Computed example of a mutant assay.
Amino acid sequence: MTRFDAETAEERRALVEDAIVAHRERTSPFLTLEAELPESAGEDAVPPWIQLSEDTLNLDCTDAELDRLKSLLDEYRSFSVDELVRPEEAEGTNARVLARTDDERIAQFVEDVFRQVYDRGEDYRLWAAEV
Score class of each variant (00 low, 15 high):
9 A>G: 14
16 V>Q: 03
125 R>S: 02
20 I>C: 15
67 D>T: 07
99 A>H: 01
66 L>D: 02
52 L>W: 02
58 N>R: 05
125 R>K: 11
102 D>N: 15
30 F>L: 13
85 V>N: 00
112 D>P: 05
11 E>T: 05
30 F>C: 08
8 T>Q: 08
106 I>D: 02
43 E>L: 03
42 G>P: 00
128 A>P: 03
9 A>D: 09
3 R>P: 07
117 V>D: 09
36 E>S: 07
48 P>L: 00
76 Y>V: 08
45 A>G: 11
90 A>W: 05
68 R>E: 12
54 E>K: 06
103 D>M: 03
20 I>G: 10
91 E>I: 13
13 R>P: 11
47 P>S: 05
109 F>D: 07
94 N>T: 11
102 D>G: 12
112 D>F: 04
6 A>C: 03
58 N>H: 04
35 A>D: 04
27 T>F: 12
90 A>D: 14
37 L>D: 02
20 I>A: 13
4 F>C: 13
25 E>D: 11
2 T>P: 09
88 E>T: 07
105 R>P: 13
8 T>W: 04
95 A>R: 13
65 E>G: 08
48 P>Q: 09
65 E>H: 06
87 P>G: 12
16 V>H: 04
37 L>P: 05
110 V>N: 14
101 T>F: 05
43 E>P: 00
53 S>C: 14
127 W>E: 15
97 V>S: 03
106 I>H: 08
68 R>V: 15
19 A>G: 04
76 Y>K: 03
121 G>E: 11
36 E>K: 02
122 E>G: 06
81 V>D: 07
20 I>E: 09
17 E>T: 10
119 D>Y: 04
109 F>V: 04
114 F>S: 00
105 R>A: 13
97 V>M: 10
93 T>M: 01
39 E>T: 01
38 P>N: 10
89 E>F: 06
43 E>M: 07
90 A>R: 15
6 A>S: 05
77 R>S: 12
5 D>T: 14
7 E>V: 06
104 E>L: 15
12 R>A: 04
21 V>K: 15
97 V>R: 05
103 D>T: 14
64 A>Q: 09
72 L>S: 08
21 V>A: 15
